[in-house]
Simulated scan of single mutants.
Amino acid sequence: MSASEAGPFLKIEGVSKSFGSFQAVRDVSLTVEKGEIFALLGGSGCGKTTLLRMLAGFEEPTSGRIFLDGRDMAGVPPWNRPVHMMFQSYALFPHMTVAKNVAYGLKHEKMTRAERDARVAEMLDLVQLTPFAGRKPHQISGGQRQRVALARALARQPKLLLLDEPLAALDKKLREHTQFELMSIQARTGVTFIVVTHDQEEAMTLADRIAVMDKGQVKQVGSPTEIYEFPNSRFVAGFIGSITSFEARVTGREDGLLAVEVPAFGTRVMARDVAGVTEGQAVTLALRPEKLTISKDRPEGPNAVEGMVKDLAYFGKDSLYRISLPSGALVQAHAVNARRGTEAARVADWDDRVWLGFDPGAAIVLAE
């Protein structure tokens, strides 16, 4: 029987969780396939960690059911679930060596000493920490401590590994490097990962699919590309990446595109069509900064808006321009700094009159 015929590896069915009068998780339904890296993404208090704790068995749902590999998890205590949770703090024992920390999770397993030693050696090799087996946690780096915690979690060979903000304690450069290490380790082990994070870039890098959460509810589920390029609401569009939004109204359809009147632009623009919206409907038009082109001359195509450079920030690989429109509205646009140089490499400078252009396919029309 194939995986699809057998059903999803993890099925969360109408799960809610209340603490007194406060509802932390509201009627969440999700499926996760075996071998996926699945991210729960959202701000503080959105319910993602509470959902993770229910999967681990540390909390029981107020209503709804959780199935793991076809088995109902209702009433199954944490120690009897084929699940391991890796905490943000890593929870390493400071008095134990790296090897003993990894072995600690195996102490209740029915294994001989030789089998346990072999498993620890295998895990240390997996996370490339064999040379550090005899060191204590304070004698290794933050990234290495994170890998010790991961090796300990994987040593018990769980079917599902839950990671709560696993990279939050690392600096930016180390966090970016460790993301790829995590992906490599997951690919080699085949264990299903569920990652809780508030960091959108981390979720986009790590996950095969993402569930964006807000106020205990799942707002959208999809691949990183689907979530970024095709958000289903103003909340998701604003939460993922940078975006500028404008009030607009649909005026009709032409040649498979949606005609949208945008008062802040003082003109009509064309956008990719959206099923279900009707002529005269109030909508939101959203534009991502990297989808806009900046030029001194009016660009070709149906979408061109004139403005003035109000602010300019140089980031090395690219520059951020804040363009003031005649209406007073501000639009953010990115330009890649492809040429090496100083002012001569800029597309425009402060107070320059410029034109913004964008492809109809880049314009996101949101009805909710």
Rank of each mutant, 00 (worst) to 15 (best):
A264T: 02
R135G: 03
A264N: 02
P137C: 09
G190T: 02
T244N: 06
P166L: 07
G241R: 05
L182H: 04
T267C: 15
I210P: 07
Q144D: 13
Q128G: 00
D208Q: 10
A237L: 13
A151L: 01
G216W: 13
K215V: 09
A207C: 07
T267L: 13
G222A: 14
L154R: 06
S184D: 15
M213V: 09
G241N: 05
V196P: 01
V250C: 03
V148H: 12
T225I: 14
V127L: 04
V148F: 03
T267M: 10
T244L: 00
G216Y: 11
G256T: 07
A153E: 01
F230A: 14
K215P: 00
D164A: 11
I243F: 05
V269M: 15
V262Y: 01
D164E: 05
N232V: 14
T192W: 11
Q200V: 06
E254L: 13
Q146H: 05
G241W: 07
L174D: 03
A153P: 02
K136W: 05
I243Q: 05
Q179P: 01
P224D: 13
G134Y: 14
G190L: 08
A248W: 11
K173T: 04
P166N: 06
Q146A: 11
S184M: 07
T251V: 15
Q146V: 07
A153F: 02
G143P: 11
A187R: 15
V212Y: 03
Q179K: 06
A259W: 01
R249S: 12
V269T: 07
G241D: 09
H138V: 06
